[in-house]
């Protein structure tokens, strides 16, 4: 158990030394940044799926709300992270709170479909934002400034900022799940009726959990917009939501840090396959099916069993 507790720290440490260990080129750093950012979104989704039992197929929407907050503020000349970050995170949390208020009234497959539908709603809304590029997307004038400095332009600094926020996201989610709040969420996942029987209503707990996951997704969205310096409706396509879920299950549901592993494996595999062939999804799709059918504990399960 103690050794398993070290595994997530090992993953984070590996990411910390990667730029010093021969992965410091701009290509590798771009790839790693993308993996860490999607990893943040995946960890927050894992918090929902594995912790609260809420399988959301619309998590890319919170990513998109965060990214679009950056784009819209950029278009109006606001590029200071001290303003952009809180606004983006609050917008993503607000969006999740509003849609969650309806979605969480349902459960099981209804919940999956409703989160998917709300995700599509956000998708179509962003595609009709003609002032911010519509379908074509919006190119940022530059990366967000931090207290007036152009810190994020430095790739190495950006790497460590992404890593720091990823660690923060993981730490926060792990702490929340271990807290009394998380205990109620986990109990409600196992048996909502018993939770009610001891006098607690699961609904507000789930809603707050959903909003927190949305806020963290928004945070990842801010970084994603900065990493690519471009925002488009594709950021919040429903395929993206599906990919995030895949990262969670590939890494292993029930282990938050598994989502980081899943995101890394996903981004590296996707990039590698796309370089090998044009129609890489012909291979990727069946791989996904096979992973679901045969890799039941996910990658983190494999690692944890070997070191268990």
């Amino acid at each position: 158990m103690t050794r398993e507790a070290l595994l997530p720290l090992a993953v984070l440490a590996a990411l910390a030394v990667a730029p010093l260990a021969g992965f410091g080129g701009s290509y590798e750093l771009t790839l790693l940044a993308r993996a860490m950012i999607l990893g943040m979104a995946a960890v927050s989704l894992s918090f929902l799926v594995g912790g609260a039992g809420l399988v959301s197929l619309g998590h890319a929407a919170s990513l998109g709300v965060g990214a679009y907050a950056v784009a819209i503020l950029d278009a109006h000349g606001v590029t200071e992270a001290l303003i952009v970050l809180p606004v983006a995170v609050a917008a993503a949390a607000g969006f999740s709170l509003l849609t969650g208020a309806v979605a969480i009234r349902t459960s099981g497959v209804h919940f999956i479909m409703i989160t998917l539908a709300f995700g599509q709603m956000a998708f179509f809304t962003t595609s009709s934002l003609a002032a911010y590029g519509g379908d074509d997307g919006y190119t940022l004038y530059g990366r967000t400034e931090v207290a007036g400095t152009r810190l994020l332009e430095n790739r190495l600094a950006f790497h460590y900022i992404c890593l720091g926020l990823l660690a923060l996201t993981w730490g926060l989610c792990a702490m929340l799940l271990a807290s009394r709040f998380g205990r109620v969420l986990r109990a409600a996942r196992e048996n909502a009726q018993r939770v009610e029987a001891v006098g607690l209503a699961p609904y507000p707990f789930r809603l707050v959990g959903y909003a927190i996951a949305g806020a963290l997704g928004g945070l990842a969205g801010v970084l994603l917009a900065n990493a690519t310096e471009f925002v488009s409706p594709a950021t919040l396509s429903w395929q993206r939501s599906g990919e995030l879920l895949f990262m969670v299950i590939l890494g292993g549901v029930g282990r938050l840090w598994g989502a980081i592993l899943g995101a890394l494996a996903f981004v590296l595999l996707e990039t590698w396959l796309a370089e090998q062939m044009q129609h890489w999804k012909l291979v990727f799709g069946p791989l996904l099916v096979l992973a679901v059918l045969f890799l039941k504990g996910g990658l983190s399960g494999l690692v944890a069993r070997r070191h268990g």
Partner: peptide
């Protein structure tokens, strides 16, 4: 959801 998503891809 995920396996059928793979079929879609």
């Amino acid at each position: 959801v995920l396996a059928t998503f793979g079929v879609i891809l």
